[in-house]
């Protein structure tokens, strides 16, 4: 029951993120900056929840099954959020204070595939996190890979 609703949420998320990005010919600079701020805030929410799970995985925080499951559920929910308005054309590293590379808009299929990988990895994490510490540790690697799967091609190096 829970499993199938998760799957549904994942598929829904994948479909939603796969929808077209807003055309931006007429977006004013403030709107572009707002989109960048929203993206960065969203990333902070990932980091906040990953912080707890990573602390447990590294052995710095005692493993707590229900807290781990809650944080993982947050990540899975965050990954499935509709991001259509997050990525208006022109909100890239060449125009604004962001590391988002223009390739995002020229390779939108690859960008969306990378996002779908995060949805899948966080769903697996949600299933594993409450089981035990070893399962949590195992699932964290794939989440890290899926983050890198988008950051590597689409984020400007510092």
């Amino acid at each position: 029951m829970r499993h199938s609703s998760l799957l549904l949420a994942g598929l829904l998320g994948a479909t939603v993120t796969a929808t077209a990005v807003l055309g931006a010919a007429h977006m004013d600079p403030k709107a572009l900056e707002d989109a960048v701020a929203a993206r960065q805030a969203h990333m902070k929410l990932y980091a906040f929840n990953l912080g707890l799970l990573g602390g447990m995985a590294k052995g710095e925080v005692d493993y707590d099954a229900s807290a781990a499951e809650a944080a993982a559920a947050n990540l899975s929910a965050l990954a499935s959020v509709d991001q259509t308005r997050y990525w208006p054309e022109g909100s890239d590293a060449e125009a604004l204070k962001t590391r988002a590379l223009p390739d995002i808009w020229t390779k939108m299929d690859e960008f969306e595939t990378a996002q779908d990988a995060l949805i899948q990895a966080t769903m697996s994490l949600e299933e594993a996190a409450g089981t035990d510490l070893a399962a949590l540790q195992g699932a964290m690697g794939d989440v890290g890979k899926s983050c890198g799967g988008c950051h590597k091609p689409f984020r400007k190096p510092e």
């Binding site: 980091a47 990953l50 912080g51 590294k58 690697g141 890290g144 890198g148 590597k152 510092e158």
Partner: peptide
Amino acid sequence: ADIANYLKTGFTPEYDTAG
């Protein structure tokens, strides 16, 4: 532990990722 975890998962201690 941070370094080993970074090499395993790509996560920095701030939960940014290796680029």
